[in-house]
Amino acid sequence: MKDQFEEIALLKGLATNDKKAVETIYQENFNMVQSLIINNNGSSDDAKDIFQEAMIVLYEKARSGTFELNCQIKTFVYSVSKRLWLKRLQQQNRYTATSDNLEDVVPVENELEEHEKINAEFNLMEKALNNLGEPCKSLLEAYYLKKQNMQVIALNFGYTNADNAKNQKYKCLMRLKKIFFTDYKNGKEDGGY
């Protein structure tokens, strides 16, 4: 049994994307998930995908602040991985019958539902950004994601001054917001992402 405080500390680290915490959780759980996937018709690449997806679910949960540690991290990651893998098998029509050892250890339906929603939104954002094309995409990423200031951006992108860069950023942003909010609304109305 792992010390509970240690686990809470790990989750706190995970929420802030602390490298040490991510490494520790990764190292302690990956092999377990990999053998689960490989024993159920998967490859090591599948294992990597599924495990990282589960890590993101854990990350989201840790960040939401509502994560009460009612089970070990290991149990949670295992359960999530299992659900994700079953789902993928079903989507690929490769899932035949429930192996007896594939029942859930802890119920993770809510977390997965939430995760899917967030995933869908982020995929939407990624799509919208990609649709912008260059230099808009890089410009917006530099400002909003990398949080660079306008002087640096103007220099890097070759604008004569920060105001021109700001002007360009504004145009790009308007386009992005238009694409994003259109898709977002459509997605919501359709009820699917």
Binding site: N17, K19, Y26, E126
Partner: peptide
Amino acid sequence: RFGEWKKFRSSLNDVH
């Protein structure tokens, strides 16, 4: 959130 999500994803790959 999107930025952090992207960052977390890439850090997972790095860790891997």
